[in-house]
Design a protein around this nucleic acid. Structure first.
Length: 200
DNA sequence: TTGTGTTTTACGACCTCC
DNA sequence: GGAGGTCGTAAAACACAA
């Protein structure tokens, strides 16, 4: 039995299979207070694809942490960093039989039967999960900023602080390890980044 | 335990840039 | 034409009050 920090109990794949074979409804897994671990996904939802039967994988805390760190460094990830991050976190393309990642799936030997034969080579769009994560993360930030803006508009204007209370830190805590350009990106909408491949 | 609201993945449509 | 951006949305996962 494995206890995860956020959701409590994690049921190993072999127990999920036993549960399924015991005659429970197919959707039983989804109603359990369990985290769907990447390595167990193919056993829980063999042959599912995103378009036919919607699904999603819950990223691990480690994956989220690393992605967040990268996001705080820069809101727009470069092609190079995307590849590195995808390789480090086991996030790549998601085209294969509902497997969470082709790389992890292959490495763990958890491909559903006939899966590789059916789908063969990876999709053209490598590191898609990282790209999508960053898109969603930016969307989340825009949403939060919008909310903040609305709250500020509703509040009456605050009187200005006395001069002795105005310090550089009043604008917010410094962002650890960030270059000014990256830090300035936080909290404001950013222009489109220059594609790394076009840089000299 | 259950109902409900929020957050997190994932995608399609559409747009811009090269 | 392809890659990657935003926007809107679906649905699973999660949190929490009743």
């Amino acid at each position: 039995m494995i206890v995860t920090p956020r959701a409590g109990v994690y049921l190993p794949p072999h127990l999920r299979v036993l549960l399924l074979r015991a005659g429970g409804p197919a959707c039983a897994f989804r109603r359990l207070p369990l985290r769907t671990h990447l390595s167990s996904w193919p056993l829980c939802f063999p042959g599912k694809t995103r378009t036919k039967d919607k699904y999603r994988v819950v990223y691990t805390d480690h994956q989220r942490l690393e992605l967040e760190k990268e996001f705080h460094y820069s809101r727009y990830i470069t092609i190079r960093r995307k590849s590195e991050l995808a390789a480090n976190l086991g996030l790549t393309e998601r085209q294969v039989c509902g497997t969470p990642t082709s790389a992890t799936g292959a490495a763990l030997g958890v491909w559903p039967p006939g899966c590789q034969a059916d789908y063969g080579a990876p999709s053209k769009e490598e590191n898609r999960e990282v790209k999508i994560w960053f898109q969603n993360r930016r969307a989340k930030e825009r949403k939060v900023n919008k909310k903040k803006q609305q709250q500020q508009q509703q509040q009456p204007p605050q009187p200005p602080l006395p001069a002795h209370e105005v310090t550089p830190s009043a604008a917010g805590p410094p962002l650890g390890g960030l270059c000014p350009s990256s830090a300035s990106l936080l909290g404001a909408s950013s222009p489109m980044p220059v594609k790394e491949e076009y840089l000299p």
